[in-house]
């Protein structure tokens, strides 16, 4: 309050300088990735800060049927996981958030505990389960396996949200003759827009990025998702490592996420913090 004008200005300059450093630290690797992806052939090995704007790497990676196939696989997996986990979680959240029944607290505890399970601890059991379901080496195995980290989180967040919706609205709907299913579908779902967007986005990001299950449950190239595809790109020797192609593929995979992050920043953050900081 009592600080002088120049003091305040210095303070602001310092803050903006720090902003700049943090932004540079955060963004430079992306710049470098994109710049490298736009250099062709051997040019990638010359360190020049300006890109050439050559699209050879993109042509190469996009004419590669396998990479396109893994992009498609990733999209199918991510959208299916979002749809399925939200569908299941909304129903569970209605039960846990709005109906008082014995078993409610134990189930909430179970959901919380499951969300903390390390994936590795399930690997052999899940492997067996996926074989038994006939899903081994199909993207169905991933859609199923990804429920482990999306479903508990979605149930948790949607339950806290659902619990805070006004009780009398539900009672008005009951008086209007709605079944529980209709209450959820026609009354609550439209009122939960923000929570659905948050949880859906987080489920999308997590499924799009998952690596270990995708590496383990998929055997052949045509069924892979992009993180594994990118991790497995290699050259014939260490010196022929196709960094240009890798950077181009990485850029393609990253762009949708950057767009999502920039567009839905608020929703993502509120989803992240909904589970953690609600008190």
């Amino acid at each position: 309050m009592v600080r002088s004008n120049t003091g305040r200005r210095l303070h602001r300059i310092a803050i903006y300088a720090l902003f700049g450093i943090v932004a540079l630290y955060t963004l430079f690797p992306f710049y470098w990735m994109i710049a490298s992806s736009l250099k062709s052939g051997q040019a990638i090995f010359d360190v020049t800060f300006l890109p050439d704007l050559k699209f050879n790497n993109y042509q190469a990676i996009l004419s590669d049927g396998v990479f396109l196939r893994s992009l498609l696989n990733s999209l199918i997996v991510a959208f299916s996981v979002v749809a399925l986990s939200l569908l299941l979680a909304v129903g569970a959240a209605y039960a846990l958030g709005r109906i008082d029944f014995r078993g409610r607290s134990p189930i909430m505890l179970l959901v919380l505990a499951v969300s903390m399970f390390p994936q590795i601890a399930l690997l052999s059991g899940l492997f067996e389960m996926i074989r038994w379901l006939g899903l081994y080496n199909t993207i169905g195995s991933l859609i199923f396996a990804y429920m482990i980290f999306t479903l508990p989180f979605n149930i948790w967040v949607l339950t806290t949200f659902m619990r805070d919706l006004p009780k009398q609205i539900e009672e008005a709907a009951i008086m209007d003759g709605c079944s529980p299913l209709r209450i959820v579908r026609c009354i609550f779902l439209p009122m939960m827009g923000p929570a659905l967007i948050s949880t859906g986005l987080l489920a999308f990001i997590a499924s799009w990025n998952e690596f270990m299950f995708a590496l383990t449950f998929i055997l052949t190239d045509e069924n892979r998702t992009v993180p594994v595809a990118i991790a497995l790109i290699s050259g014939s020797s260490r010196y022929e490592f196709p960094y240009g192609a890798i950077m181009a593929a990485s850029t393609i995979v990253t762009v949708p996420l950057i767009v999502l992050a920039l567009l839905f920043q608020k929703h993502i953050v509120s989803g992240l913090t909904a589970g953690a900081v609600k008190g």
Partner: peptide, 9 residues
Amino acid sequence: FQSYALYPH
């Protein structure tokens, strides 16, 4: 109802 409980959407 006291709070009217209209469907907001």
